[in-house]
Computed example of a mutant assay.
Amino acid sequence: MNRAENIIVGISIGDLNGIGSEVVLKTFEDSRMLELCTPVIFANVKIMTFIKKNLDATTALHGIDKLDQIVPGKINVFNLWKEGVDLNLGVNDEKVGTYAIKSFTAATQALKEGIIDVLVTAPINKYNVQSEEFKFPGHTDYLDQELEGNALMLMVQDNLRVGLLTDHIPLSEVASHLTEELIMKKIETVRKSLIQDFSINNPKIAVLGLNPHCGDGGVIGKEDDAVLRPALKKIFDKGTLVFGPFPADGFFGSGQYEKYDAIIATYHDQGLIPFKTLSFGKGVNYTAGLNKVRTSPDHGTAYDIAGKGLADNNSFKEAVYLALDVYRSRIQYAEITEKPLRVREK
Rank of each mutant, 00 (worst) to 15 (best):
E180N: 07
F251A: 02
K238C: 04
D237C: 13
G250Y: 04
T240N: 09
E188C: 03
G281R: 00
L87C: 01
I116P: 00
T27H: 10
K185P: 01
N285C: 09
G250K: 03
K186E: 14
N17T: 11
D158I: 04
M155D: 02
V118D: 10
T337S: 15
D144C: 13
P39C: 09
F246N: 05
V326T: 10
I19M: 11
G14I: 04
E35M: 07
V343S: 12
M184I: 13
K276G: 13
N211P: 04
D68Q: 09
N314C: 12
G84D: 15
A306P: 04
I8W: 00
E22I: 05
E29W: 07
G239V: 01
V174K: 01
L290E: 03
E146W: 02
S329F: 14
I235S: 02
P170Q: 13
S315W: 07
P230F: 12
S296H: 04
F252L: 06
G300K: 05
G209V: 11
R3Y: 06
D93Q: 05
I235N: 00
G271N: 04
I235C: 00
T287C: 11
N54G: 15
A175K: 03
A107I: 10
G20H: 00
N79C: 08
R3C: 09
T240D: 06
L310E: 15
E180L: 07
Q196R: 14
D225H: 08
Q256D: 11
E345I: 06
K238R: 15
V162E: 00
E113V: 07
M48E: 09
F246A: 11
L278Y: 13
A319Y: 00
F275H: 09
A231I: 07
E173R: 05
G138R: 06
L160P: 00
A206I: 04
H62Q: 15
E113H: 02
G209Q: 02
N92D: 07
K308Y: 11
M153K: 05
G289I: 01
A43L: 10
S329Y: 12
N88G: 02
G218H: 03
D167K: 01
V45I: 14
V284E: 09
S131G: 14
D312T: 06
I264M: 05
V207P: 01
T295Q: 05
L80T: 11
T59S: 14
K192H: 13
G149V: 08
N314V: 09
L278F: 10
I101T: 10
M33K: 11
I124P: 00
K46C: 06
V219R: 13
L182D: 09
Y327H: 15
V85G: 07
